[in-house]
Design a protein around this nucleic acid. Structure first.
Length: 510
RNA sequence: CGGGGCGUAGCGCAGUCUGGUUAGCGCACUUGAUUUGGGAUCAAGGGGUCGUGAGUUCGAAUCCCACCGCCCCGACCA
């Protein structure tokens, strides 16, 4: 063990900040990036993580941007209870099926001391569940609020936490408790509800690609992968660097299923009582996991500029108190000037790191935290009127000497350039790892662990029927979606030989 | 819930098989000196109910039993 430590010390020059590397152990690498970038920490509560300030700031940036988009499309925010009466869940049969197995249940309302230990007491007449999602309790309220077609549509979003008692958890990707937003809308016609469902899918697509820089495939979930209780489920699917798929967001057309379960009825123009048509749509803190796995490298997080808690970090370099005062003043001026600029509707976020630690240490910390631009400023630079600039998405050793005024003037366009470049890189990676396959033998070979290590997405003709699960499940492959943008003519299902009109995306997934 | 592995300092581990003074090591942390433009060096320090409980023993991190927790692989999933 001691030898190993010595080796790593000696090899510092070629050592990566994150070990193991992506190549060596992708799953472990992912965990290490989260720890090294200070995004989150495991808590003592099973399956629940602590989102640390750096991670929470990313979530706040996500919230802010999404919230603006929700409001721009006519939605308002509200808040519904964390606890849901057990009987509500029973109202929608498929919904029960989907969530009953992973519900935390509240059965008591106080504690008493017994034999020196605290034990639950005061049993509730009806158990409450901690919301795994809020369709039922929101539906119950909508049924009170909706009487007339004039009360529709209702376009409400809620930012909340939910809990699903998952068997296996991974930070950000799947935790028992997670933060999300859930939109719940009610409409008087199916067309309007479907339009809403697809509008929000578009919002998610645009947000994922332009803010998170994650390229996504917009599609409909095959019938056997639908949200419990939904008529149609739409999804945006992303590819991670290990070629696995990540469901990054979903939008559901719920038809009248939940309206019937919750009695959301209204008197229409024609004088008839009708059930409303509802939708729901959500994205969660999982998106942060997606950001990590899409962009980061073996030196840690690479954070897209638009959601980076700090976009530019200035590291002052000085060796004595006189220099220090001068350098800090100089940094303050640059900080003030750059902060005047607006990027993605917010002032550019600049931070001066004047902590009393070595500058090399600082640099590496900010590298691991994924700050897009690092600027080192010492007397040498001040005298030459230049700044020493490093960009996180480039090789870690590259430094640019840029005239101070030029840097300030171009800061926003550089940030935006980084944002575009990491998106393009991720998109090229994804596109290079999607293959069209037209027979089942090739399909089996593609997902054979011994023949192919870097499995990507398969685009293939397939029938939208649960029957294909028997072909793909043994390969640990899932049917991700039926892309909405189909360029294909009619074809033949590679599993069943049936005539179909659409291709489907298959992949291993998170 | 089935199969496998593991609980020793904040983190990572050695020691357990074969019981024996004061339980070690690396990183991190504190202090001082020398350093400082890409993860500094040296020195001196602080930090432990060895997962919990009950046993065997003169003596338990080590052996026995029970329990708890965590990780990995399955089934389940935003």
């Amino acid at each position: 063990m001691n030898n190993q430590t010595n080796n790593t010390n000696n090899n510092k020059a070629i050592k990566t900040a994150i070990q193991p590397t992506r190549q060596e152990d992708y799953a472990k690498w992912y965990q290490e990036v989260i720890v090294a970038s200070d995004l989150a920490d495991n808590s003592d509560v099973r399956g629940c993580m602590v989102i640390k300030p750096w991670g929470y700031a990313i979530w706040e940036a996500i919230q802010q941007d999404l919230d603006r988009r929700f409001k721009a499309t006519g939605h308002v925010n509200a808040y519904f209870p964390l606890l849901i009466p057990l009987s509500y869940l029973e109202k929608e049969a498929e919904h029960v099926e989907g969530f009953a197995k992973e519900c935390a249940v509240v059965t008591h309302h106080k504690l008493t001391t017994k034999d020196g230990k605290l034990v639950p007491d005061g049993e509730l007449s009806e158990p409450l569940i901690i919301r795994p999602t809020s369709e039922t309790i929101i539906g119950a309220m909508y049924s009170k609020w909706v009487k007339s077609y004039r009360d529709l549509p209702i376009l409400i979003n809620q930012w909340a936490n939910v809990m699903r008692w998952e068997m296996r958890t991974r930070m950000f990707l799947r935790t028992s408790e997670f933060l999300w937003q859930e939109g719940h809308t009610a409409h008087s016609t199916p067309d309007e509800a479907m339009a809403e469902t697809l509008t929000m899918l578009d919002v998610y697509e645009d947000f994922a690609e332009n803010v998170l820089a994650i390229p996504v495939i917009k599609g409909e979930k095959p019938c056997f992968e639908r949200f419990p209780g939904a008529v149609n489920t739409f999804t945006i699917e992303a590819m991670m660097q290990d070629c696995k798929a990540l469901q990054a967001g979903t939008s559901h057309f719920l038809g009248q299923n939940f309206a019937k379960a919750s009695e959301i009825k209204f008197l229409d123009k024609d004088g008839e009582q009708k059930y409303a048509w509802t939708t729901s749509w959500g994205v969660s803190t999982r998106l942060i996991g997606g950001v990590i796995m899409t962009h980061s490298d073996d030196n840690g997080l690479i954070c897209p500029p638009k959601i980076a808690p700090q976009q530019i970090v200035i590291i002052p370099i000085y060796h004595n108190d006189t220099d220090k005062e001068h350098v800090i003043q100089y940094c303050d001026k640059i900080h003030a000037e750059v902060s005047e600029f607006i990027y993605n509707k917010n002032p550019v976020r600049v931070h001066i790191d004047n902590r009393d630690i070595r500058s090399g240490e600082k640099s590496w910390q900010w590298i691991k935290k994924g700050v897009p631009i690092r600027v080192e400023i010492g007397m040498r630079d001040i005298n030459q009127d230049i700044l020493c600039v490093s960009l996180r998405h480039e090789d870690v050793k590259i430094k640019h000497n840029i005239k101070k005024d030029e840097f300030i003037a171009n800061a926003v366009s550089v940030l935006d350039g980084i944002q575009r470049q990491i998106f393009e890189k991720a998109k090229a990676f994804r596109d290079n790892n999607i293959v069209d396959i037209d027979d089942i033998t090739k399909f089996n070979e593609f997902f054979n662990d011994e023949l192919n290590q870097d499995r990507g997405f398969v685009n293939a003709y397939a029938v939208n029927d649960v029957i294909i699960e028997e072909f793909i499940k043994p390969l640990k492959v899932t049917a991700r979606c039926i892309p909405l943008n189909q360029t294909n003519a009619d074809g033949v299902c590679i599993f069943t030989g049936k005539k179909v009109t659409q291709k489907m995306i298959f992949a291993r997934s998170y």
